[in-house]
Design a protein around this nucleic acid. Sequence first.
DNA 1: ACGATTTTGGAGCGAACGCTACAAAATATC
DNA 2: GATATTTTGTAGCGTTCGCTCCAAAATCGT
Lengths: 205, 205
Amino acid sequence: MGRLREFDEAKAIDGAVDCFWSRGYEATSVRDLAEHMGIGGASLYNAYGGKRALFVTALARYAERSMRERIARHEGNGQPKEAIRAFFAEIIERSLADRDRKGCLLVNSALDVAPHDAEIGKVVAGYLEEIRAFFQRNIEAGRRAGQMPRNLDAAGVSAHLLGVLMGIRVLARTRPDRALLESVARPALDLLDMPVKPRARRARS
Amino acid sequence: MGRLREFDEAKAIDGAVDCFWSRGYEATSVRDLAEHMGIGGASLYNAYGGKRALFVTALARYAERSMRERIARHEGNGQPKEAIRAFFAEIIERSLADRDRKGCLLVNSALDVAPHDAEIGKVVAGYLEEIRAFFQRNIEAGRRAGQMPRNLDAAGVSAHLLGVLMGIRVLARTRPDRALLESVARPALDLLDMPVKPRARRARS
DNA sequence: ACGATTTTGGAGCGAACGCTACAAAATATC
DNA sequence: GATATTTTGTAGCGTTCGCTCCAAAATCGT
């Protein structure tokens, strides 16, 4: 019963993600959204309710296709330390290749909209917590596998890694410089290495 | 010659800073600004040129009164390691006490407006570089004073500290939790401590 | 085929946006 | 005190904002 939708819902959401991602929430207009989603304004409101509701949907899509996909891909190889290292390496590579400096939609939202919208704030905090949990899982696995120091504080270091990740994504938007971003990440990744006998401080494998 | 200004220029700029700081660039309207600055719309355009030009002025004011003041205050005591530690401690304390989660105007701008405005982007990058330079100066001083490991990479670690600082300010806006923020900072600050004889990884003074 | 239901395009709502025009008010110079 | 110059308040410019209304179009169950 009823006329069925003529537009590609997946493509539409992807278009919305691109809009919010590159322009930010406030600077994105409903007309911009509709155009990039390939639908009319009435369809947008009929299918998604409005700008804010669409943003929540787009955020979920981004988290699923970009964040969770990346976590699953790196965690799939069964090498905990390499999973974390490769995760950071990929973020740095993508940040350097990101010519229009869109950054990460989650990080952008954490500063843009989360502080002014408690509900979205909790959603964003939940997504970031998933990243931290990924770090913690792999620290614990790496410790068990003897790849990482036995006395490594999994909860604490996972929080540190999350913070460093956020820092990389912030700095990448104003200074996308490889040496800078790698310098930010290196001491954090060095924490995962086994200690060496002599008192070398920043041992590198 | 000519009528002289009736409003307090310092108070006006501070009002503009508060507006941009708490609402962000896009979400701040010229009428909001004029009201919080205690002036009329015509005076705003006459004295500051427009919204964007006023933002640049407000950003400079913020950098001077908030960032450089803090750097000077902590660097003034002549204790390099303590300067860095106290700097981070103050950021964490202020982030936890920041009930409306305004965060740092520089960090907010780095994600909000810098990527969409090359000129402002360079300005923001310059301010962030001042913070990194503060870290590097104090690492070098701490090394010379024998407070910090002799082989500490001042340039690299200063970049790391800047990244961690950015991460703290991002996470504070979605999860202002003391344990989280201190966990983010601790491994970075531990880099500044002298190595200990036994293979303890996260030695704490 | 028909009625019920949903989607679609277009027009347009009231409000807010950044900004400007303009004349009155206030000062310095002469 | 007359004149030139600057600031101030008010009004309003044209545009865009998020959103809604409505009739035509398209599909279902019967």
